[in-house]
Design a protein around this nucleic acid. Structure first.
Length: 623
RNA sequence: GGGGACGUAGCUCAGUUGGUUAGAGCGCUGCCCUGUCACGGCAGAGGUCGCGGGUUCGAGCCCCGUCGUCCCCGCCA
């Protein structure tokens, strides 16, 4: 028989009781985490969001309460009414925050029972994502998940407070909008009223926020849901949340200061000091130093070692003399065995003409001076792993090697990124040995975070990457594509090369990377209609096409559009970093599987013919 | 669209060269137990080996197909 709550009210949460509360009459409400039944003495661990408290039932002190406790099972919802008591010295549990006290219950009410759960929220070790996602409410009861969402809440709140203090208005934009067939695939919403027509869910509020600037709101932000119908990854969900902001009259640095401000506030909210300002690097420099546009600064970058070789060395080694030679150094990994090197070979991408030299010992036999210089210039300690990446002189490639004004050529980028990606792979594989990632885990898991400010300067390494190329060549179509989106402003002094040398045009586009993850990207936008039209043309879009897709926006640009710019940061990814999680699913309450299915509500589903008829839709499925 | 890993009790997993009645730990049920906190002790229940087909005297194990979960490539302006 279940009991009624009646007029009972909670006096304390389970996690808050301390020695100072001894003697208080309390009412605790929560879930039975565990029951330890000693016969005439029963211990119930009562759990709520705040923690766990031990409730004691002594048959001699109350047979009725004891009987209720005997009936209680894991995940029953109960009320424990009684008195807080200091535990005896020998039965204090130092592992629990509430371990110095216990509640001697005079009454237990069983408010609800529970089937035996498919897995226990009380257990630390949890597997099988399928079961976790199906019974998501049980999974979310686990303290770890509760913690992740506490972090998420605190971060979102800190961001709102900071941005509000800087004059930003939070303004919502529509979920049902128009499809703009660039970029990712849209999720579509059929219109009942307009047969055969569809709304699209926004991939981002991009054009709306620009129009809010045209509308004179000066500074806008939104914690905005975005939708992209593309295949999933551990760090990609079909719907995700961005901290989206836009402001009028910004310099790039203005945007940076705002973002640094709210990130520092967000980190502070979870007890971590994040130093500002963040370092900045241009895209070209990032490629040269890290071989990737989202550098992980927790490990050393690439080192240019071309100087160490003479021209005929390169010939002997079949290395392209015109391409860079860089060293990848991973500290403390030690010398690799033949087998380890063979195992690592598939992690190296040689498809675009990059060549890996991973046996420095062997190289040293023929080129002792070169290897010496390399060890010196990379600052390699004796237990550091060093490998070389260069251009393969024997590679047959149909890739343009034309350099445009001062920028990296495609083949140079190919060598750098082969090295950069290999660096990331090695870093991931040998994380235990180099220990650079453990620093982050330590800070994330540090219990001192609640008390005060933990130094995050070594654990979290943000960096701004600036001056991306305006366009990228689409290898399939041979068309120039915008690196970011077509509303990004080119550098004013590069404008005259839009047609003559598009590859050399730099965009006022910037990324924020942290620990090798892309956290966000933004740009200073185009605010003059003529420039916007020119960009559309450079992208191979006819004026008619531009008008039919973005006519409303081009028109808005005609009515006094102020210079403006902004950025969007992935809230889910940010929380993932701060929670020390390895998947977005750990920080999204109701995520979808890799096939974009919600296992709890079982979505998507077929709908009735009636519904389809109203929407003027017929499915093309073969039955 | 492609590649890889996994799928055996409610959960985590073992299962040898294809061979009799498929195991362990946790959980669950019952009984015992007054200081446990991953309580302990005794006894017990619990299996469509993801699903379908094939090979074989015989399949959890081999083959083909299929479904699901995860990771990656493509994709994600």
């Amino acid at each position: 028989m279940l009991d009624l709550l009646g007029t009972l009210e909670r006096t304390h949460t389970c996690g808050e009781l301390r020695a100072a509360d001894a003697g208080k009459e309390v009412v605790l409400l929560g879930w039975v985490n565990r029951r330890r039944d000693h016969g005439n003495l029963i211990f119930l661990d009562l759990r709520d969001r705040t923690g766990i408290a031990q409730v004691v039932l002594d048959k001699d002190l109350g047979a009725e309460a004891h009987l209720k406790a005997e009936q209680a099972r894991p995940e029953y919802v109960i009320a424990a009414i009684g008195k807080v008591r200091l535990r005896g010295k020998d039965v204090i549990n130092p592992k629990m925050p509430t371990g110095e006290v216990e509640i001697v219950a005079s009454e237990i009410r069983l408010l609800n029972d529970s089937k035996v759960p498919p897995f226990s929220p009380a257990e630390d070790a949890i597997g099988n994502e399928e079961v976790r996602l199906k019974y998501r409410y049980l999974d979310l009861r686990r303290p770890e998940m509760q913690h992740n969402f506490a972090v998420r809440h605190k971060v979102a709140l800190a961001v709102r407070q900071y941005l509000s203090s800087q004059g930003f208005y939070e303004i919502e934009t529509p979920f049902m909008t128009r499809s703009t067939p660039e970029g990712a695939r849209d999720y579509l919403v059929p219109s009942r009223v307009h047969a055969g027509e569809f709304y699209a869910l926004p991939q981002s509020p991009q054009l709306f926020k620009q129009i809010l600037m045209i509308s004179g709101f000066d500074r806008y932000f939104q914690i905005a849901r975005c939708f992209r119908d593309e295949d999933l990854r551990a760090d990609r969900q079909p719907e995700f949340t961005q901290i989206d902001l836009e402001m009028t009259f910004p310099q790039q640095q203005t945007v940076f200061r705002v973002v640094e401000g709210f990130l520092a506030a967000a980190f502070a909210a979870v007890g971590i000091k994040l130093p500002t300002p963040f370092p900045q690097i241009t895209y070209d420099e990032a490629m040269r130093q890290f071989g990737i546009d989202k550098p992980d600064l927790r490990l050393p970058g690439l080192t240019d070692v071309k100087f160490a070789f003479a021209a005929n060395d390169l010939e002997t080694l079949a290395i392209s003399p015109g391409l860079p030679i860089v060293a990848v150094r991973i500290p403390k990994v030690g010398e690799l065995s033949r087998k380890e090197r063979d195992d690592n070979r598939p992690l190296f991408d040689s498809r675009k003409g990059a060549k890996l030299i991973d046996d420095l010992k062997r190289l040293e036999k023929s080129f002792p001076d070169a290897v010496n210089k390399i060890r010196e210039v990379t600052g390699a300690q004796s237990d550091d792993l060093v490998v070389l990446v260069a251009g393969d002189a024997t590679a047959q490639l149909r890739m343009s090697d034309t350099k445009s004004a001062g920028r990296l050529s495609e083949r140079e980028i190919a060598v750098y990124s082969a090295a950069g990606n290999f660096r990331v792979e090695l870093a991931r594989k040998y994380a235990v040995r180099h220990g650079a990632f453990a620093v982050t885990e330590q800070v994330v898991g540090s219990p001192e975070r609640d008390a005060g400010q933990v130094d995050g300067s070594a654990a979290f390494r943000p960096i701004w990457v600036t001056d991306f190329p305006m366009f990228e060549l689409d290898e399939e179509t041979g068309r120039w594509m915008p690196s970011h989106h077509p509303f990004t402003s080119p550098h004013e002094e590069d404008m005259d090369r839009l047609v003559s040398d598009p590859a050399s045009v730099r965009a006022r586009y910037y990324d924020l990377a942290m620990n090798g993850l892309e956290l966000g990207s933004g740009s200073i936008r185009i605010h003059q209609k003529a420039v916007q039209q020119e960009i559309f043309r450079a992208l191979g879009m006819s004026d008619e096409e531009a008008k039919s897709r973005f006519g409303f926006f081009l028109e808005a640009l005609e009515y006094g559009t102020p210079p403006h710019g902004g950025i969007a940061l992935g809230l889910d990814r940010l929380v993932m970093i701060l929670a020390g999680a390895s998947s977005l699913r750990e920080v999204i309450a109701f995520p979808k599987t890799a096939k974009a299915i919600d296992l709890m509500v079982d979505a998507p589903t077929p709908v009735s013919d009636m519904q389809l008829r109203e929407l003027h839709i017929r499915t093309a499925l073969k039955s």
